[in-house]
Design a binder for these strands. Structure first.
Lengths: 164, 164
DNA sequence: TCCGCTATTCTTAGGCA
DNA sequence: TTGCCTAAGAATAGCGG
């Protein structure tokens, strides 16, 4: 009986935070950590009620991944149309200039999405990603927009499951 | 000798991802996790060379926290002025429409920042936050803009230390 | 490319100063 | 609210399919 017996894998290993040279592993890391980042963001949203927008652009193929809370559509529409259905919007409109950043950002975002919709007018709801991050399709939404391939544009929506 | 001896703290405990009712703990969580999120983002930037922009808006006081890579100024200036100092910019300008989102976002961002600078024309480099996230003042930058108090506007810059 | 699998590293909830 | 501390929970690097 070997106490330090066979280990199936080496498990996680420490890495230095520096550019990953190997292309394939860098890509894998990009995917994994991007997902982890979005998950963290969604948790932060739910736990604290914060509103978050994230843009992640890969260096290689210039694929843009965005994250928005609450659902991209609802945030965007509320900001743009000034529905003021919640106090949040009122506060936003009344506060100082900071929210203009989000406003402008969201505005451009919607504009862009409209053009995308003309391109592909349906949404692929709840892709495989959903299961992976244990999410549901209500609270948060994530939009993956890829532009390199011909039909690679896809939109995946999912929200975080709220326990109780 | 009690084997399950005294434990100084309970250590981390599992929590459900649901809105935190208690206000103070929610605020603590907001600060901690926001910082954690930015740290993750900076690591992702360095590891994979991705470009990331994050907007986090607290629900309570409408304070806006933003994160940009690489340093806000360099990214912004490169995008706006089209200096094309690196291949990154060329790719951005040549690729498809996605980057327009970032472009518009950054543009608005810069515009906003300009107004802020007219307000306070110096930067508070390397605030206390730096130490906390073990960062340096070169690679990444984070800008904390608060607008509720009278003189609460502050800008903190710091970057992540790259090992080797 | 992407999924599953661990062993490790990393993050952080709750307390307290 | 700001910062430390510690243990327990989470994220993930490297592999194999």
């Amino acid at each position: 009986m070997n106490t330090n017996a066979v280990k199936k894998t080496q498990g996680r290993r420490k890495i230095a935070i520096k550019p990953i040279d190997n292309q394939s592993s860098r890509h894998v890391t990009f995917s994994k950590r991007r997902l982890g980042l979005f998950k963290k963001a969604s948790e932060l949203c739910i736990l604290t009620g914060a509103e978050i927008a994230i843009l992640v652009q890969s260096l290689k193929r210039q694929r843009l991944f965005t994250f928005g809370h609450p659902s991209a559509d609802s945030v965007i529409d509320r900001y743009l149309n000034g529905k003021s259905s919640s106090s949040t919007v009122n506060q936003l409109n009344m506060q100082q200039n900071n929210q203009s950043i989000i406003l402008g950002f969201v505005e451009n975002w919607k504009w862009r999405r409209k053009r995308k919709r003309a391109f592909k007018n349906q949404r692929c709801a709840l892709g495989e990603l959903k299961k992976k991050v244990t999410m549901r399709a209500d609270e948060l939404s994530m939009i993956n927009g890829s532009s390199s391939s011909n039909s690679s544009m896809k939109i995946a929506r999912f929200g975080v499951r709220i326990n109780s």
